[in-house]
């Protein structure tokens, strides 16, 4: 079976979105199953966005924020970090492997890091196989 994961990546307007643009300019290749959605801040990512993404068929969900201390809005990424810790437990309760949800930091200048992270996550989720919520 040729499984191609669908992964939703939330990128913040100030750091990771810029990194994703630069990754494009540098022609860093990554699979077409990776889809980016812009938010102003990683702190804007409502836990329900992550759950909805899984519900709509995403095999993995990623939030990429500014590095701790570098948030454009001072501390939004810390809020994201706290929520992510809780959310990981919630999705496990729902029968979703916690590896399918990742929070990482990527600064505006880290185009290579951006590409490496999402390629790595893609490979990991490829191994996990399609999301099947256990009843």
């Amino acid at each position: 079976m040729n499984f191609k994961p669908n992964i939703v990546v939330f990128v913040c307007n100030w750091c990771s979105y810029v990194a994703s643009d630069t990754a494009g300019m540098k022609r860093k290749k990554y699979p077409a199953g990776i889809k980016l959605i812009k938010v102003m801040c990683s702190g804007r990512v409502d836990p329900q966005f992550v759950l909805k993404a899984f519900q709509n068929g995403a095999d993995g969900v990623v939030i990429l924020g500014c590095h701790p201390g570098d948030c454009h809005y001072k501390e939004g990424n810390y809020k994201a970090m706290k929520r992510a810790a809780l959310l990981k437990r919630v999705i496990r309760e729902l029968g979703i492997e916690s590896d399918r949800f990742v929070l990482e930091w990527v600064s505006a200048s880290e185009a290579d890091r951006f590409a490496n992270i999402i390629n790595e996550i893609y490979t990991r989720i490829e191994k996990l196989g399609p999301l099947e919520v256990k009843k």
Partner: peptide, 22 residues
């Protein structure tokens, strides 16, 4: 400044972010 942190945290869904609504 429109970061939307309050929107993501509002338990009643009362807060909304203009141009980045749920």
């Amino acid at each position: 400044q429109g970061c939307g942190t309050c929107v993501a945290a509002c338990p009643s869904g009362a807060a909304y972010a203009k141009h980045f609504k749920d």
